[in-house]
Design a protein around this nucleic acid. Structure first.
Lengths: 192, 192
DNA sequence: TTGAAAGGAGACCGATCTGTCTATTTGCGA
DNA sequence: TCGCAAATAGACAGATCGGTCTCCTTTCAA
C-alpha cells in the first residue's frame, strides 16, 4: 500500500464528504494533493474504484472509532450510554478523527447511488450491518433474553440513524442526547 | 402556473430521485419531456432554481400525503399507529403518489448539499420541521402533558428518520413495523 | 388579421468531466 | 553509475455540462 494511494483516498474522502461524490471531479482531488493524474489512474482503474476504496476506508475508520469509544465503557448499560455519547461527540465535532460533521457518509452516498443493486450502495449497506452487529454485541452484555437482544438492537439502530438525520438535516446538535433518553426508555422496557 | 413548468418539475423530481441531483444533467430532463431547453430556461433561471422548485414540490406532495394518511385515523393513539403504517406503505411501494421508494428525497438532497447554509439544504431542513410539526399535532391529541408532548414528538421523529434510513440504506422492508413497536414503548412510557 | 407570449430546434459557448498517453524526471537499490 | 519502478507535467480525446442565443413556429386574445 503506497503512501500516494493513501493520500488520494484520504483527500478524496474529505472532498467527497464536503461536496458530494458526483459534484466533485477528480481534477480537484489532484489539485488538492498535487498528485499527477497518471498516478491516480495507476492506483485506481476509474473514479468509481476510487469511490469504492474511499467508502471502505471510511467504513474502517468509523467502525474503529466507534468500537474504541464503546470499549472505553464497562460492559452493560454503560456501553449503551457510550454509544449515544459517542454520537454526541461526533455531531458536535469532538471526534477529530471523523472530520467535521456533515451527516453520515454512508447515508449521503446511498442517496447518490440510490439503486440498492449498485455496488457502492451495497458497500454502504454492509457498513450499516457492521455497525448493527457492533451494537448487538454491546446489547448482548446486558444479560437479557435473546429475543429481547434482537428487539433492543433494532430500537437502538433506529434511534442512532434517526439522531444522525436530525443532527444533519435539521442541524439539531442535541439529537444524540434526545436519542439517549429514548434509548433509556427502550432499555428499561426490555429489562422489566 | 403553466403545464410545461409542472411537467418539468415532476419529471425532474422523478429523475433526481432515481439518479441523484448532481449525477443528472438537465439535458436528460429535456430528452425525457421533449421540452426545449429555452423553455426550461424561460421557467427557471438556472438548474439550482429548478432543484429548489422540485424540493418545494416534493415537500408539498409528501406533507399532503402524510397528512391525508394521518387524518384517516381517529385522533389519539390511532394516529401514532397510522404514522408508522403510512411509512410501511411508503417503504413497500404501496403509496403510489410518492413513486417507488428510494429513500427520503430530503435526506438524499441534504447529502448532496451538505453545507447547512446552502439554500437547498435549508429547504430540506424546513421540510423536516414541517413534518415534525405535523407529528407533534397528532401527539397533542393523546391528552398528555405539554412537556411529554415535546418528548414523545422527539422520540417519534427519531424513530421515523431511523426507519427511513434502515429501509433505504439497509433495504429493511420491515423497518417501519420495527419502529412502530418501539413507538408503542415510547407512548406507554409517557402515559403511565 | 395582427401582435404578443409561449414555445421549439438546434447551433453555439466556455468549462469541465473522465480517462489515455508521451516524454521526462525522480527515487532507490545493486 | 545503471536500471527499474514510481511518479510527473501536461497535452490530448471525446463527451457532457449548464447556459445563451437566433430564427422560426404555434397559440391565443383583441
Amino acid at each position: 500500500m503506497s503512501e500516494k494511494r493513501q493520500v488520494l483516498i484520504e483527500t478524496a474522502f474529505k472532498l467527497f464528504y464536503q461536496k458530494g461524490v458526483h459534484a466533485l471531479g477528480i481534477n480537484e482531488i489532484l489539485a488538492e494533493t498535487g498528485i499527477a493524474k497518471k498516478t491516480l489512474y495507476n492506483h485506481f482503474a476509474s473514479k468509481n474504484e476510487l469511490i469504492s476504496a474511499v467508502v471502505a476506508y471510511r467504513d474502517k475508520c468509523f467502525c474503529d472509532w466507534l468500537e474504541g469509544e464503546l470499549n472505553k465503557a464497562a460492559p452493560g448499560i454503560a456501553r449503551i450510554n457510550a454509544l449515544f455519547d459517542a454520537l454526541d461527540d461526533w455531531f458536535n465535532d469532538r471526534a477529530e478523527v471523523l472530520l467535521p460533521f456533515r451527516g453520515c457518509f454512508f447515508i449521503n452516498v446511498s442517496g447518490e447511488f440510490s439503486d440498492p443493486a449498485d455496488p457502492v450502495h451495497q458497500q454502504c449497506m454492509k457498513h450499516k450491518d457492521n455497525i448493527a452487529a457492533l451494537i448487538k454485541k454491546q446489547v448482548g452484555t446486558l444479560g437479557i433474553d435473546v429475543d429481547q437482544v434482537e428487539r433492543l438492537t433494532d430500537s437502538l439502530c433506529l434511534l442512532k440513524e434517526g439522531a444522525i438525520v436530525l443532527a444533519h438535516v435539521q442541524g439539531d446538535k442535541r439529537a444524540a442526547l434526545k436519542a439517549k433518553k429514548s434509548a433509556e426508555v427502550m432499555v428499561r422496557s426490555v429489562r422489566k
